[in-house]
Design a protein around this nucleic acid. Structure first.
Length: 359
RNA sequence: GCGGAUGUAGCUCAGUUGGUUAGAGCGUCUGGUUGUGGUUCAGAAGGUCGGGGGUUCGAUUCCCCUCAUUCGCC
């Protein structure tokens, strides 16, 4: 596989580089807002772009269930469908195996879900996940992995999940190559492998080495930010930092708390995604300079004439929306409030990555 | 003036054969949310039960007086 990532510089463990995709270049470090079902909730794609986003994430599991990859393909693929003009990364559905664990059955072949909407049984396998992501028109395809919780039940399964993830990775690679055989390096999507291993450093190292030994465009760290303490996660990131293959891009999945974003970037991570900026925003929580949090619906903001954050350059703060107005819209349940706060939070994370990129 | 109805948490109201620390929703406040099960989840604070008197072992509950609000009739 041709090398699609170019490391431009590395200073004190902080990397900056360029990832080439068929839908455009991505400058790293980068944060990716999540648009599970084809839209970053409540936001016009242009607004997401204007907040400094370069790439967004979509979800195989959700889009497969509704409207289905056939419909997306018929509508021109994810880009035409969503009107997002930049690169799109799709999650493989592996995480849903974990987050919806109470309603699925995992075997060596794959995972069988019950569609919560229709009750239909849905089977997802490594091959199927690749096919769906190709049909969706994804620019960065994630391997189908087996994520485990970090509690006692999960620990017992960690090794099994790890080994299965590795076997599934090889199946993903084989299927990916088959599906992209007629494509060039300029027209093919990228494929990322995922390292697992829970909080076991030995397993993590082995998993990372295995993934990096395979023919993938990027390496992702999965199975973190799933309930462990911040200390545990940081400790693992610190441990992994010197073990990465420097020529590949490093994607930490599911992390988006500003404190964690900074820590990750300072420990060799190039890409991250998270629902936190948008989910928190819809629940009226915004970030302020210094990684502080503010609840926009508290009564003391009722007559506050200031913007969310004085020094912020996001569209919401720039356009003069006051805390008093936002608090009011949150109180009456107007979704504009969540949209405006989402813009702010996404911008906040993007600004962090920009600072590292430009430093 | 006469008659009726209603007064319980900041708001809207539950709460009888009188019985421990009087409840709910909303609101307020605090915390949570990390590869999205969509208007979230958890917790906390907050009440002289309009006021006074009486009956009773014990009254938000029964009786009397009074105040307030409200409706109807002269």
């Amino acid at each position: 596989m041709k090398q699609m990532f170019t490391l431009l510089k590395e200073v004190n463990g902080v990397r900056s580089g360029t990832l080439k995709t068929r839908a455009g270049e991505v400058h790293t470090p980068v944060f990716m807002p999540v648009g599970t079902r084809g839209a970053v909730k409540g936001l016009h794609p242009d607004v997401v772009r204007a907040a400094g986003s370069q790439i967004i994430l979509g979800n195989t599991y959700h889009l497969h269930l509704q409207p289905g990859e056939k419909a997306v393909k018929a509508l021109g693929g994810l880009h035409e469908f969503t009107r997002w003009k930049g690169p799109i990364l799709t999650d493989s559905g592996g995480f849903q195996v974990f987050s919806l664990a109470h309603m699925n059955k995992i075997t060596e072949e794959g995972v069988t879900f019950k569609d919560p909407r229709t009750g239909d049984l849905i089977t997802l396998t490594p091959e199927k996940s690749m096919q769906i992501q190709i049909d969706l028109g994804s620019d960065i395809i994630m391997a189908f992995d087996d994520v485990v919780s970090l509690d006692q039940v999960g620990r017992a399964r960690t090794v099994e999940a790890l080994e299965r993830t590795h076997r599934w990775l090889d199946r993903c690679i084989a299927e990916f190559k088959r599906l992209t055989a007629d494509m060039t390096d300029e027209t093919r999507p990228l494929l990322f492998g995922i390292a697992q291993g829970g909080l076991d450093k030995d397993l993590r190292q082995k998993s990372l080495e295995l993934v990096q030994s395979r023919d993938v465009d990027g390496v992702a760290i999965g199975g973190l930010s799933v309930g462990e303490t911040r200390e545990e996660m940081h400790d693992m990131l610190e441990f992994l930092a010197p073990l990465y293959n420097a020529t590949k891009v490093h994607y930490l999945m599911g992390v988006g708390d500003p404190v964690d974003v900074r820590f990750a970037i300072e420990h060799g991570i190039d890409m991250m995604d998270c629902v936190l900026p948008t989910r928190n925003a819809r629940h009226s929580a915004v970030w302020l300079a210094g990684d502080k949090r503010l609840n926009l619906s508290i009564a003391t903001l009722a007559e506050d004439t200031g913007p969310i954050d004085e020094g912020c350059d996001c569209a919401t703060c720039n356009d003069g929306f006051t805390r008093g107005f936002l608090r009011h819209q949150f109180k009456i349940g107007e979704s504009l409030a969540g949209s405006l706060a989402s813009i702010h939070n996404i911008r906040y994370l993007n600004r962090i990555t920009e600072e590292y990129r430009n430093s």
